[in-house]
Write a protein that binds this DNA or RNA. Sequence first.
DNA 1: AATTTTTTGTGCGATTATCGCACGTTGCAG
DNA 2: CTGCAACGTGCGATAATCGCACAAAAAATT
Lengths: 256, 256
Amino acid sequence: MPETPEIQLSDTSLTFAKGLAVLKCFDATSVTLTIPEIARRCDLDRAVARRLVLTLVRLGYVRQRGRSYSLSPRILVLAGGFLQGRRFGLAVQPVLEGFATQLGQPLMLAMRDGFDAIYVAHAGSEGVMPRLGFTVGSRLPLLSTSLGRALLTVEEPATRAALIAEAPLTAWTERSVTDRGRLAQLIGAVPAGTPVRASGEFEPGVTATSLGFRCDGGELAAIGHSSESALYTEPGFPEQVEATLQKCAAALRGLL
Amino acid sequence: MPETPEIQLSDTSLTFAKGLAVLKCFDATSVTLTIPEIARRCDLDRAVARRLVLTLVRLGYVRQRGRSYSLSPRILVLAGGFLQGRRFGLAVQPVLEGFATQLGQPLMLAMRDGFDAIYVAHAGSEGVMPRLGFTVGSRLPLLSTSLGRALLTVEEPATRAALIAEAPLTAWTERSVTDRGRLAQLIGAVPAGTPVRASGEFEPGVTATSLGFRCDGGELAAIGHSSESALYTEPGFPEQVEATLQKCAAALRGLL
DNA sequence: AATTTTTTGTGCGATTATCGCACGTTGCAG
DNA sequence: CTGCAACGTGCGATAATCGCACAAAAAATT
């Protein structure tokens, strides 16, 4: 199990949970939804879904256009609470930008959330974003990306093993590693702070190197670099990337 | 009134609204909160606050560390639904990046949310972000920034007047315009598509130019540029900025 | 260090907000 | 124009929520 909710069963608010499910069902593929659609997706009665959606409308998180509903930019304010509270704008982003321009290559930062790695920041994004369409909040598969695997290397051994055993394992390309045993070999026992490389497993022709690190506050994160695989054949390039990642991790360790 | 919720009173879920208030009270200045603090901020009974927070913990939106609670990265997934749904990663960001590098200057994109302008994207952020600490989801005052005022210029005249009359008006610097009458002169009657400039009103020594636009889908947005005021004395620079903003707005109009 | 005072965590019954059925309506297709 | 299906919404029964009261912990005071 990824999180340890310590089994707090029924002193949680059911209505609130349903409401959050409604909010969550506005995802990347569902820009606008009608009330019946929402009810079906969340397995709610139409009347219930209606009341919850109207609550979101009244509070400004959702906009109504005729009979269809869509998220309003206000949802970003919630994310802003997280980002600004941890000083992503003031402290993290500048560090990332600095090392990205020094390396001349994009860098990205991710944190784990359950079975996913979540994109939390990036710098020098000219190359990577248009191709993959990543934004803040994008979810990456934990086991099929170097960022995700790097996050695993700093996890407690028990958690690491559990995640390798249970996290979804999809074949994205023909080079994807789909054998959990092989994954355990790759990242099951490496010491924390080992750079992780993946070539063409998630996206053909793209190689990525990532480094997980444990922050002073205890938070886990991973920084990564992604570029065309060809670049990695240039002498010294992999070493340069890894050195930058190490320095960047060291700089970020105290900030989060 | 900014939004028109059309007075849907009591077919909204009270519990859900309270839960969202709890989620919202984790803002930039409150990274970690205890249950009693949350209860006080949201004016809730401690037991109620507890149940709502534990719900957030169980669903993974909040992390518990001893007696204090803080947002988890999962909150970004909600924002990701908005960002990816509108193709910010795939379509919007590349356009922004393109024009930003062409101009050699940072560009930023904002949308209105009530009395605030909300930062939704930026490109070429080396200069502006470290200084102001803006992130996706940052809230800017509508009347005191060029981005905010540009958003007003594309609003319906009635809404525009209402916002000029009612939106908060804080003096950020000594150059801030704090007279609503003067603001009405500046932006109350200009035609949609007029660039808006502000010099040192929000931040001393910084001049910003912004342009509001109405997208094909009806969404309102504004793109802006911000730089040291000195740059604007170079001949041709203001014109170059405005031309870029116009082209960028035209390119974005069909995307949102 | 011991005691007082304040603050916090949580069980339980009354009450109230919520659920989901039912009906009336709207949009769509034949 | 008619029939059908999907949708929006009032209302009573019911179950989830509220907030009090108590216990425990922490903090402040003596």
